[in-house]
Amino acid sequence: MKEWIPIPGTVKEKLIKVALEEFSLNGFKSVNITKLAEKANTTTGAVYHHFGSKYSLYEVIRTDMEQRIIDRMEGAASLFDQPNKRLEAALITALDFAVKSKICRLLSEDIADYKNDQVKKFIYEFGKDIPLPLEIVIYSSWRYILKAISEDEITYEQGKDLLKWLLKRELN
């Protein structure tokens, strides 16, 4: 069992809920620990007590959201035999979850210390079935589509169409 899963109604749970919202809305760099603690009706000391640092709190949240996405991606991919159909189903399902959960900004951020990107690892696994290292382009496109959606540059539908177009062109 994961040790960071909070008990409902605890300070830790409030901090995670508020931090998820703040990181998703404003991005890692723009989140202020003092304001985050105030929104959670607690102190900055509680943040540091439970998580040690702003980065550690971010890592807990991002890892959890990525795991939720990976679970969905694996389920969607398992429905198809062809690599391009598997990856398309996985990415569209992940995009849908990210948009509905309002975590596009969170997942599109490039945080220098964050090295545990599970979505990247999932996409790179498909590289084994592709003759060229297209997983680099696919992953980069995935992240940029999330960023563009979070900044209202494109719609969810446009993002979905871009992924379909990219996978149709790159994997056939």
Rank of each mutant, 00 (worst) to 15 (best):
D110E: 15
N116Y: 11
L36S: 00
I33C: 07
N32L: 00
A40H: 00
S101H: 06
G45V: 09
I92T: 07
G27E: 07
A37K: 01
L95H: 04
D113K: 10
T44R: 02
G75C: 08
E66D: 13
A90E: 06
I111R: 03
Q118R: 13
E88R: 12
E66G: 10
E59C: 13
Y114F: 14
V99L: 06
F28S: 02
A76D: 06
Y48T: 07
H50S: 12
Y55W: 06
L107C: 05
E109F: 01
N26A: 13
F97T: 10
R86K: 15
A94G: 15
M73Y: 04
A98H: 00
I61W: 03
Y55T: 07
K100W: 07
E74R: 13
N84C: 12
Q118Y: 10
S101T: 09
N41Q: 14
F51S: 02
K100C: 08
A46F: 09
I33P: 00
N41K: 13
K39Y: 04
K102S: 15
S101E: 11
K115P: 09
M73P: 05
A77N: 05
E66H: 08
A112P: 14
S101P: 05
E88S: 11
Q82L: 12
T63R: 11
Y48N: 04
V99I: 09
D117Y: 04
H49G: 09
R68T: 12
L87Y: 07
F51W: 03
S30T: 11
K39W: 02
K115V: 13
M65L: 12
K39Q: 13
H50T: 12
I33Q: 03
R62K: 15
H50C: 10
D113P: 07
K100V: 09
N41R: 08
I103H: 00
K102M: 11
E66K: 05
E59K: 15
N41H: 13
I33W: 04
I103E: 01
D113Y: 09
K85H: 15
I92Y: 03
E66C: 09
E88V: 10
T44A: 01
R105E: 03
M73T: 06
A37E: 03
L95K: 02
F51R: 02
T63I: 11
R86S: 11
L106T: 00
F51E: 02
A90F: 05
S108C: 07
K115Q: 14
P83L: 08
T34A: 07
A46E: 15
D64Q: 14
S53K: 08
